[in-house]
Design a protein around this nucleic acid. Structure first.
Lengths: 353, 353
DNA sequence: ATCAAAATTTAACGCGCGTAAACTTAATTA
DNA sequence: TAATTAAGTTTACGCGCGTTAAATTTTGAT
């Protein structure tokens, strides 16, 4: 059976092949139609109505490829996130995607699977489709800053979530100093000062910021910082948290009865370890350990116990990143200096601390 | 500051504008180059070498839009999954994506966010870019079968994960009858026969298959099936599992001390409820309840206790779906009849049952 | 060396739309 | 109502590549 694609559409109103034909049947000239498809608001209201009613009658849509071939700038916007299988990034990507769509652009979502080469490849793939701009949540420390910079020199790019010095025209993220400070304050007010549980060599720049923020907050309150650093590389944070958690708990090597994890995924692994070793976690008197996280990961409300954490303002970050990019695109100008915007996090009190 | 994109590339070897110019500098005629870029193996080995060494010297890549404009079929393959923020789908999508890439196609990943309209919109967006084929994991019961069919009539499509009767040229998924049978056997051998915990009106067709499989397996073993059906719609499975779990546990309404959940995400919510209500879950004698899931969700190894479940063969499903689609594309033929392939699941024994 | 098959080159056309210039029509303002 | 401006039409060209047909070269087997 040959692959004869059935032509869909009624015989009475045959499918319109190209803009020329649509111009004929709609009674609008092709250049005007071209303007309309490029930006519907650029034509007079009355002609817009005429076009749109013709559109309803004749179902035609311009050829995507021919359309973009000769345009200086397409309406495509690339969205690159470090890890698609991490619900945190999936969620923030969804927010960004919707904003891009609402602004009349076409989002193209790519995940880097934790691999810096994949990240570069994603950007190179984007280059091919000549995007109007890119929203990039970089891998971080492992990213190739030179190649990232080279890309950003060619395509207007806004970084979000993780910052890399001097890469991109702007950065939007969370204020780790504020959020970690908030959490340390809370933990100190309600119990023993926390130790900080993190990866020894974290790939995410936020992790480093959170470490300093923790140290700063502890010293501000007159406590000695206690760092608990797990070995391990990569993006399998739960496993790293689990392994190191198991070790320190079974060796009775906990520097404090309160553990502040650098992120929720580490905390999820840590909590799992505590459970398996029979260590009761929670804020109550009957518990031996308190655990807190950071990010308000979608799963943090189902851990045992539920995880006290910091909720990042997904929505604000997504909105600000997108708006910054749209501004650059529409004004066809780059900011004079690199703009960094950070939003406050909110404390989410749950069972674990 | 005007948006003057810096031209990257050395002055000594100026950037090649188009295939014509590349033909000039490489000493290969344009039609041959065109053939090469369409399929590198379609030119003689010696000329291929010449082209590729020229490519290293001159960095040129054909204009994506001009390239696809006049091709009957692009090298794009759409991948549509129901929910990007579900790590299960993110993982399977990653597998599929890599296979598509390795086969020399260009994957375009779209998530439907659990919304049937978004699903249709994704397909319509794909239509615009004239994909060679589509790999579709449909939402299921809520999907619009007519519009899905209409799309599949125009574009070669392979369904995976969730089956919809007569939609697409083929289906690849898991054998729920086998996997649920396996789990029921295991649970009955090691303890009390399980009750089946599911959503009252699940949107996923696998859920219905699993229900029947459970009933069949129980009757085969001479037990009366026990269905525990949670109200609720949508994709917030953990919450649904948690709510109903909380209810039946606190009302002491458990029909059995063994609960087989229709999927891991329900189980995750259920386990969280059990923990919060102080009900000890596990296979040991000291536990009051056993819980099992299905899918081997990435988080199922960090639940408390760790979740006994069925691992679907991600990799086999991805490979078979992709190969089936590639076969159709390359032979330019559709299968005479719709092919359905299912793979066995494997029991993953962990702490919860 | 001979010759047919296979691969490449040359030349030329078309795809569907962006875009620019010159002109005409419609809407706005005085 | 005339003058002005904004919007639309006509005409025409170009983009970069797919594709075809005929002419030519290369290849590999005889």
């Amino acid at each position: 059976m040959k692959n004869e694609r059935r032509v869909c559409g009624r015989m009475t109103e045959p499918k319109i092949k190209n803009m020329e034909e649509f111009a004929a049947v709609s009674g609008i000239s092709r250049p005007t139609l071209s303007k309309y498809f490029n930006d519907p608001s650029s034509v007079r209201r009355s002609t817009r109505t005429r076009i749109e009613s013709a559109l309803e009658k004749f179902d035609y849509q311009p050829n995507f490829y021919a359309m973009n071939q000769n345009r200086r700038l397409t309406k495509n916007i690339g969205i690159v996130i470090p890890y698609m299988a991490d619900p945190f990034f999936a969620e923030i990507a969804r927010n960004v995607e919707n904003l891009v769509l609402d602004a009349g652009y076409r989002p193209i979502l790519l995940g880097s699977h934790g691999d810096p080469e994949q990240e570069i490849e994603n950007l190179e793939n984007l280059r091919v489709i000549k995007p109007a701009g890119v929203l990039l949540a970089p891998l971080g420390r492992v990213s190739d800053p030179d190649r990232l910079s080279a890309f950003c020199a060619d395509v207007p790019t806004v970084l979000f979530d993780a910052n890399i010095e001097n890469v991109g025209e702007a950065f939007v993220g969370s204020d780790n100093m504020q959020s970690i400070g908030l959490m340390v304050d809370y933990l100190c007010e309600t119990g023993e000062p926390p130790a900080f549980f993190e990866m020894k060599s974290p790939s995410n720049p936020n992790a480093l910021k959170r470490r300093s923020a923790y140290v700063y907050a502890m010293e501000r309150l007159g406590h000695a910082p206690l760092l608990l650093q797990a070995p391990g590389e990569g993006w399998d944070f739960e496993d790293i948290g689990f392994q190191e958690g198991s070790r320190v708990i079974s060796e009775r090597n906990l520097p404090s009865d309160t553990i502040l994890c650098s992120n929720d995924r580490l905390a999820i692994g840590f909590l799992s370890a505590a459970y398996q070793l029979g260590l009761r976690v929670g804020s109550g008197a009957e518990s031996a350990l308190r655990v807190a996280g950071h990010d308000d990961h979608p799963f943090s409300r189902y851990t045992c116990p539920t995880l006290t954490t910091i909720a990042q303002d997904y929505e604000a970050i997504a909105r600000k990143s997108a708006q910054t990019l749209f501004g650059m695109i529409e004004s066809n100008a780059r900011p004079v200096s690199r703009i960094e915007t950070v939003f406050d996090g909110n404390l989410v009190r749950r069972g674990s601390a």
